[in-house]
C-alpha cells in the first residue's frame, strides 16, 4: 500500500496530496475502527448494566444469526465505498433475488440451482451498475439508484404480497441451528450455516483486500483514481469487479435472509442500503474512499444489530424510530470523519 502511494510523491508537482495521505494514513485507518470497537464494547457494558442478559451465549448467538445478512452486505459495500463509490441497489437486489428464489423453490426447482440463480441475479445487477458507471460515465449513485428502481420495479412485477417459502424446503437448511455449547436452560451458543457463510465471506474479503493485487488496486483507486490510472493499475477491470462483488454479495445476503425468515416480498430490504452504508462508515471506512477496514465494517454491522437489541429491550423507543436513530448515528459518524480529516489537513 505504502509503496503504491509513495511513487507519485517523487514527482515534485504532485507531492502535496499523496504525501499528506501517507502521513495521515496510520491515524485515519486505525482511529475510527478503534472508535467503533470502543463503542461496541461500551454498548455491551451499558446494555449489561441497564438491561442485563447481554453478555451471554444466546444473546451473542442471536446477534450473529440475525445480522449475518447485514455483515455480508456491509462487506460488499466496503469494497465499493473504498473506491469512493456507493451501491444504493443492494436492498432492492435482495428483494428481487429472494422473491425469485422463493417462487422458483416453491415451483419445485432444485434448491442448489435456486441458490446459484439468486446469487447470479445479484451479480447481474452489479455488473449492470458497473457497466453504467465505467463505460458510460454515469455517477455511481445515479447508476445504482437506477438499478435500485429497476430491481424494485421488477420485484413488484413478480408479486406484491409476501411469498412464503415452504417449511420443508431444503433452502431452510441453511438456518439449521447447531448447538456448539449446551448451556443451562436456553443459554446455548448456537450458530447456523448462515453465520459460517458470513464468516467465510469476511475472511475471504479480508484476504482479498489486504493480500492481493485487487485489494491494493481498490485502495489505490479510492486514494486517487487518476494516480491509480497513471500508475498503470487495471482501474476499469477493478471497478467493474467491485460492483459485481457488491451485487454478488447482495445476492448471497438474499439467500441467507430468505433461508432464515422464509418470506420474500417486493418491499423486503427497503432501507438496507442505508444500514449497510452505516455499518461501513461506523466501522471506520472513509466515505470518500481510500481508507478503511473490512473488519471494521463487521464491527459496524454488529453495533447496528446490538442497537436493535437494546432498543427492543428498552421498549420505550417506538420501533418506527429505529431508522431515525440509524440515520442519526450515520450522520454523526460522517460528521466526525469530516472533522478528523479537515483537522489533520490543517496541521
Amino acid at each position: 500500500m505504502s509503496t503504491l502511494l509513495e511513487r507519485p510523491t517523487s514527482g515534485p508537482a504532485r507531492s502535496a496530496r499523496p504525501s499528506l495521505l501517507t502521513r495521515l494514513k496510520p491515524n485515519l485507518e486505525t482511529l475510527p475502527t478503534l472508535a467503533a470497537v470502543l463503542i461496541f464494547i461500551g454498548m455491551i457494558v451499558y446494555g449489561e448494566i441497564a438491561y442485563g442478559r447481554i453478555v451471554q451465549a444466546n444473546t451473542i448467538s442471536n446477534l450473529l444469526i440475525n445480522n449475518s445478512y447485514l455483515i455480508i452486505l456491509a462487506v460488499g459495500m466496503t469494497f465499493v465505498i473504498l473506491t469512493g463509490g456507493v451501491d444504493l441497489s443492494v436492498g432492492a437486489v435482495i428483494a428481487i433475488s429472494s422473491l425469485v428464489g422463493v417462487m422458483l423453490a416453491n415451483a419445485g426447482w432444485n434448491p442448489i440451482a435456486v441458490i446459484v440463480l439468486m446469487i447470479v441475479i445479484g451479480s447481474a445487477f452489479g455488473l449492470a451498475s458497473g457497466i453504467l458507471i465505467q463505460f458510460f460515465n454515469v455517477q455511481p449513485f445515479i447508476a445504482t439508484l437506477a438499478m435500485m428502481f429497476l430491481a424494485r420495479g421488477l420485484a413488484s412485477m413478480l408479486s406484491t404480497t409476501p411469498e412464503r417459502l415452504e417449511d420443508d424446503s431444503p433452502i431452510r437448511a441453511l438456518s439449521t441451528e447447531w448447538t456448539l455449547i449446551d448451556g443451562p436452560k436456553i443459554n446455548d451458543l448456537v450458530i447456523t450455516p448462515n453465520v459460517l457463510i458470513a464468516v467465510v465471506v469476511v475472511l475471504v474479503a479480508f484476504f482479498v483486500l489486504h493480500r492481493t493485487r485487487l485489494g491494493r488496486t481498490v485502495y489505490a483507486i479510492g486514494g486517487s483514481e487518476q494516480s491509480a490510472l497513471l500508475m498503470g493499475l487495471p482501474v476499469v477491470r477493478t471497478k467493474l469487479t467491485i460492483y459485481v462483488i457488491s451485487g454478488t454479495l447482495a445476492g448471497l445476503a438474499a439467500v441467507v435472509y430468505t433461508s432464515k425468515l422464509g418470506i420474500a416480498q417486493n418491499i423486503t430490504g427497503v432501507g438496507w442500503e442505508l444500514d449497510a452504508i452505516a455499518a461501513v462508515i461506523i466501522g471506520g471506512t472513509l466515505l470518500t474512499g481510500g481508507a478503511g477496514f473490512v473488519l471494521g465494517s463487521v464491527v459496524g454491522a454488529l453495533v447496528l444489530g446490538l442497537m436493535n437489541v437494546l432498543i427492543t429491550r428498552d421498549g420505550s423507543i417506538p420501533p418506527e424510530a429505529t431508522t431515525i436513530i440509524t440515520g442519526g448515528i450515520l450522520l454523526v459518524f460522517v460528521l466526525l470523519q469530516r472533522l478528523v480529516v479537515s483537522r489533520k489537513r490543517k496541521t
Partner: peptide, 8 residues
C-alpha cells in the same frame, strides 16, 4: 405492477 419497472 409493471409500471415501476418500465419507468426505471
Amino acid at each position: 405492477s409493471a409500471t415501476p419497472a418500465f419507468k426505471a
